[in-house]
């Protein structure tokens, strides 16, 4: 085992948009600080509630009038709506609205858009009735709406130690920040995790072992009904472990059903598939069961090249519209980023 990192390294900028910057002013005593923080939290709750009830009304109006013209008129309205949701301190909901443009390019956009509108309303309604929800689901709702969770509170929860396989990594640029998602799969616990880090465009992201590596580490999970996002609480070292164990293609629907049962808004979940053959438009097992790829993935030529018509271990991101391949392990056990 090699040592490669420091214990409890901090991620660079943990950019929760509108994150908890509730610092106290100078000269206020401890009791005053607590009181000030409570007032601020209450103010936020009521602002969010107002913003989300406006969102509910807006959605009802859209569906009442019909969405046939959405391709022409909606994007401008979404911009406006997203801005108001940011003002209402609901950046998570705002982000969902901003991403709605992605569905308009699809042939079946009316169905996709109705689905997104319906889930947005479900989120607003769930927030309205949050008091009646079980605690984990309430946390999920708060996270999706965009309430900040401090690193300290996450790191204060019991961490999960395991040998974590790095199964995927993707960098995406958004708002002059590069967001890096690293997906991990635990060897012993079978748990999956996603570590998110940010850095300004042009600056290097904090280094992380590449896909194919296995790390002995403690992860602290953000609260929620279907927890996935995590912080690296302690890095202990690298492990030589070979390709990660995976699930069968035929087991994926049950797995995803479980994720969605706990968190119906979930639109991304890492999968490690074992014995999957790459096809031109999906991943199949030896019985011919196949999971389709996301339309944006195109023909996965690199994946096809490594698979060569034979079963391989593949990591992919599940999304409601299909899989996005992340990593494939070749016959020598080497990981290839896709």
């Amino acid at each position: 085992m090699r040592r490669w990192g420091q214990a409890a390294t901090r991620n660079a900028g943990d950019a929760e948009a509108g994150g908890a910057r509730a610092g106290a002013g100078a000269g206020i005593g401890a009791g005053g600080r607590v009181a000030a923080r409570r007032t601020q939290a209450e103010q936020r709750e009521s602002r969010v509630a107002v913003g989300l009830s406006e969102l509910e009304r807006w959605l009802a109006d859209q569906i009442g009038q019909g969405i046939a013209q959405a391709r022409q008129s909606a994007p401008a309205e979404w911009d406006d709506l997203a801005r108001r949701l940011v003002d209402a301190q609901a950046p998570g909901a705002a982000g969902t609205v901003t991403r709605l443009t992605r569905v308009l390019g699809a042939e079946d956009w009316p169905g996709l858009l109705l689905g997104e509108y319906a889930l947005l309303r479900l989120l607003a309604v769930a927030h309205r009735r949050a008091a009646a929800l079980p605690e984990p689901l309430r946390q999920t709702v708060r996270a999706r709406v965009g309430y900040p969770v401090t690193r300290e509170s996450v790191l204060a929860t019991p961490a999960v130690r395991d040998h974590w396989d790095v199964v995927g990594c993707r960098d995406e640029e958004q708002d002059r920040l590069v967001a890096r998602r690293v997906w991990l799969a635990g060897r012993t616990t079978g748990r999956l995790a996603m570590v998110l880090s940010f850095s300004p465009v042009g600056q290097p992201l904090e280094s992380f072992p590449p896909p194919g590596a296995t790390i002995d580490a403690d992860l602290a999970f953000y609260p929620g009904a279907s927890p996935l996002r995590a912080l690296l609480a302690e890095r202990r070292g690298l492990v030589d472990a070979g390709p990660p164990p995976g699930t069968k293609v035929s087991q994926v629907p049950a797995l995803i059903a479980e994720v969605l049962a706990a968190d119906p808004w979930s639109d991304s979940w890492p999968l490690v598939l074992d014995g999957a053959v790459a096809c031109l438009d999906g991943l199949a097992d030896d019985e011919g069961n196949a999971l389709p790829l996301h339309p944006s993935a195109g023909v996965p030529w690199r994946l096809l090249a490594v698979s060569g018509g034979r079963p391989v271990t593949v990591a992919a991101e599940w999304t409601p519209r299909g899989l996005l391949p992340l990593t494939v392990w070749n016959e020598d056990g080497g990981a290839v980023r896709l």
């Binding site: 629907p253 995803i256 059903a257 969605l260 053959v277 097992d285 011919g288 069961n289 999971l291 389709p292």
Partner: peptide, 16 residues
């Protein structure tokens, strides 16, 4: 929409 996402069965693959 949640039921459809959760209940999607694997299709038939055409592996090369």
């Amino acid at each position: 929409v949640v039921r459809m996402r959760a209940g999607r069965r694997p299709g038939r693959g055409r592996p090369p």
